[in-house]
């Protein structure tokens, strides 16, 4: 039995006033095995964020079913944690308290363990010195890194990430690729990550899934390169070039 199965998911949003409704997902089916790292690629507006929201249980599909570990997904639950496209940090808390928020909802941890885990992840994203900063005092990229720490710290079984690195500089990004690969290989958690960067998708993903408008899977490829991978590896660049080419020629705008 697969870890996560999506069967023929339909999702339509009401369109603008007087306009036709918008089809975000159209008979989308996808299975994900435990421990897979799936990179989702696709043009803007093709339904990637909607897909993650449905898997997280925040949106209900019009038709179709999502199962996680055999259980039908009926609502959000902390073992399927979504990291939003906008950082969605809480402005009434400081950086450390933001990272602690999800950890406080994990049972069987002492407060000391929570604190040390929060600090560990803040250190990983390079913000150990900013633990007392308020959200409005952070740059866009810093916010994204806090959101990443907040999502990783509670150690969910399924991590859903929506363009987690879009606002980062190249150096920080490559550092975090290495960290994320290490965490993923160590904990064997399942990850679904949306990205617009093809090389990033190939560098991190054990599988690359391409969506096309309206919300269908048009390609699904396994990436067999060994981990840890680096962005400038020649083989990786070749795979990425192949996928870019596919996106340009096969996926209609």
């Amino acid at each position: 039995m697969s870890f996560l199965t999506l069967e023929a998911i339909d999702k339509t949003f009401p369109g603008p006033r007087g306009g036709a409704p918008v089809c975000a997902l159209n008979q989308l089916s996808l299975t994900v095995e435990e421990g897979e790292y799936v990179s989702l690629l696709g043009r803007s507006g093709c339904g990637k964020s909607t897909l993650l929201a449905i898997v997280a249980g925040l949106e209900k599909p019009d038709r179709g079913q999502i199962r996680c570990r055999g259980q039908v997904v009926a609502g959000p639950e902390r073992h399927r944690l979504l990291m939003f496209q906008d950082a969605a940090l809480f402005p009434w808390l400081d950086v450390l308290a933001n990272v602690l928020y999800g950890l406080n909802l994990v049972e069987n941890l002492t407060n000391a363990e929570r604190l040390s885990r929060a600090e560990k992840f803040l250190e990983m994203v390079g913000l150990a010195d900013c633990r007392r900063f308020r959200v409005h005092q952070l740059s866009g990229g810093m916010r994204q890194r806090v959101a990443l720490a907040r999502a990783l710290a509670p150690d969910p079984d399924l991590l859903l990430m929506d363009e987690p690195f879009s606002a980062l500089d190249a150096l920080t990004r490559e550092q975090l690729y290495a960290d994320l690969q290490r965490i993923w290989t160590e904990t064997k958690k399942t990850i679904l990550m949306v990205t617009h960067n093809v090389r990033e998708a190939v560098c991190l993903g054990s599988r690359v899934v391409i969506l096309a408008s309206p919300g269908q899977v048009v390609a699904d490829e396994r990436v067999t390169l060994p981990y840890p991978r680096t962005l400038n590896d020649l083989k990786l660049t070749a795979v990425a070039a192949h996928i870019s080419c596919f996106l340009q020629t096969e996926v209609e705008p």
């Binding site: 925040l58 939003f84 809480f90 808390l93 928020y101 909802l105």
Partner: peptide, 25 residues
């Protein structure tokens, strides 16, 4: 609603959401 969603995916429910998100926000 983004704050509420963020709290819910981290496992916050009912009173906890009220106390930690709704009221401070």
């Amino acid at each position: 609603s983004l704050y509420l969603k963020a709290a819910r995916v981290m496992g916050s429910r009912g009173w906890h959401t009220w106390a930690t998100v709704m009221l401070p926000a």
